[in-house]
Design a protein around this nucleic acid. Structure first.
Lengths: 329, 329
DNA sequence: TTGTAAGCGTTATCAT
DNA sequence: ATGATAACGCTTACAA
């Protein structure tokens, strides 16, 4: 910057004013400075600007894992949206563990992110380590934090309710649910399970404990094992609600391993509408929350709070659509 | 830092020495300083450190799109590996366009990344804008840049050769290839096409122009359309080599749309071994490059060059394995 | 073993 | 409209 100033015959301050498009610089001077910038190949040093301003222009996005169609998809939207607002996104992987989620918060602090979008799946609202965060956090999609944070929620309960009702409408009566094993507290697993129970109850169907299949992780592998368990059990099953599309993909494969056909023998529905859902054979019916909407709201809430830290927290729930495809035909 | 120094009754410099684990600090002083750090909740300011040292500790990773199982998977490995070496990873999306790839380079500059891992799919080795980069770049996986950059290559030609040979071994004689439309120059598309041609030639099969199906983008959508074209043509086809697993997923779906069975009517093989390949119905045979190895090499090359900028460029080609699954049984 | 001084590149403030 | 100065928090070089 000193070089540019010398070249243009002005002070560093004037260069700064030109670089930042501030008013109060005469046209000829501005031109001279711009020329000097061209000539010297000058570029602002963001570290210096950050040091001075206390802002990095970077927001963190903490997700369980960036591979995983759902979070990858979401991340792509967040990155695009943040860019529109002049923010860069740094991605942290939490590994779907409470410790990783806390680490992400600490990291954000160390790296001086301006804020953090946290897709928490394990962290408890009561976790004392949550108190430490000294900058804006927006919770995305999962746990309930009782109004302590801005929150963009998934339509967990309503979505699964709609999915289960759809299976009943298609004539299913023995509907299994494949879900996580954290059936206590308020989290994605419990809320989706509640939606399933609510739909059964409304249609006068009894939930059968034998039709509750829990998995440790939300992976295709776990889903496949769940599919095996369903196929190998003596229980009649004519429909399956899977907690996520990724798990559904595994369930589908597990049923195929045992020679069961979807939708011929068993109907299957997922949750998320990952890009692959439409291309599976059979294509997967699913609950499709509006990912783009979620990303936009999350970024909007975060940048809003960066501007006004003391504002009241807000909670949004994403709209969703039921995508009916071959797997429930 | 001044606060900590005052609290511990030492100078800022001593605090710095303790924070950076430097030798030459007596044990009692070190303890006092650590206590003071605890008490005050002090954390180093990375911006200040960066400003002083000229290094950010952040490396950029530019990929066409972070959703996309292949790049998501690769990114996860790169992030993990870089973390081991004390680097953070910022992800840039290029949108599979040369302009986006150039932007990523410029961005890296602005954001003062210490280096960039660039998964270039469109950028040409002759592109003049490539000259600008004033920091280390490692090319990952695709284009050939004639030794100008450190490069971790995919086993493009050998992989497709092996895939095609495998189909021939399974009795296929009319083998189509679904690939990109950039059939000139040295890039992933041409090299994989060469591997296909080489395998046909070695087994005395004539390449049939009608069996070359090109797509604009490496997406499931494009693959599906290609599947339709193959099914609707009058040509006999008994095997398909797809340029990527993602495209293969689309081809499989496109063939299913037309009532064609894999592997019954047509055998299909992909490239990449994305996590979904194993879970597709039928499961997808594919060429499996060692992603973890690639990520590790890329990070290693980059950090090596950050340490020694003038070193000779190196080129590695990833090892691969042929995964034989149901789609070619 | 510890401390002092200067400077990394930028910008806010105040002066001209 | 433009400039001088100081400060952001840290580390290198040197002095004690």
């Amino acid at each position: 910057m000193s070089d540019v100033a010398r070249l243009a015959g002005v002070s560093k301050m004037t260069v700064s004013n030109v670089v930042n498009n501030r008013a109060g610089v005469s046209d000829p001077v501005r031109r001279r400075v711009l020329d000097a910038i061209q000539q010297s190949g000058y570029r602002v040093n963001l570290s210096a600007r950050t040091l001075k301003s206390g802002r990095t222009g970077i927001i963190g996005l903490a997700v369980p894992e960036i591979h995983s169609p759902y979070f990858g998809h979401l991340a792509a939207h967040v990155i695009a949206r943040a860019a529109q607002q002049g923010f860069h996104v740094a991605i942290e992987q939490t590994g779907a563990a409470a410790a990783g989620e806390i680490d992400a918060i600490a990291h954000s602090h160390t790296l001086h992110f301006d804020g953090l979008i946290l897709s928490a799946v394990e962290l408890d609202r009561a976790d004392p380590r949550l108190a430490g965060a000294a900058y804006p956090i927006v919770m995305l999609g999962e746990q309930d934090f009782g109004g302590r944070f801005d929150h963009v929620a998934m339509p967990n309960e309503d979505g699964t309710y709609a999915a289960t009702t759809h299976l009943i409408d298609r004539g299913c009566r023995d509907i299994a649910i494949v879900t996580g094993n954290a059936l206590e507290g308020v989290n994605v697993v419990t809320r989706r399970y509640q939606g399933y129970l609510a739909a059964l109850a409304e249609r006068g169907l009894q939930p059968d404990p034998a039709l509750l299949v829990t998995v440790d992780t939300m992976t295709m592998d776990s889903g496949r094992a769940a599919g095996h368990r369903l196929a190998d059990s003596r229980h009649k099953v004519d429909g399956v609600v899977a907690v996520t599309d990724t798990v559904a993909q595994g369930v589908l494969r597990g049923l195929a391993d045992r020679g069961l056909r979807v939708p011929g023998d068993i109907r299957l529905i997922g949750f998320d509408d990952i890009p692959q859902a439409e291309f599976m054979v059979p294509s997967l019916s699913t609950v499709a929350p509006d990912h783009q909407w979620m990303a936009a709201k999350a970024v909007e809430l975060l940048t809003g709070r960066i501007g006004a830290p003391a504002r009241e927290t807000t909670e949004y729930t994403a709209p969703f659509e039921l995508m009916v495809r071959e797997s429930t035909t």
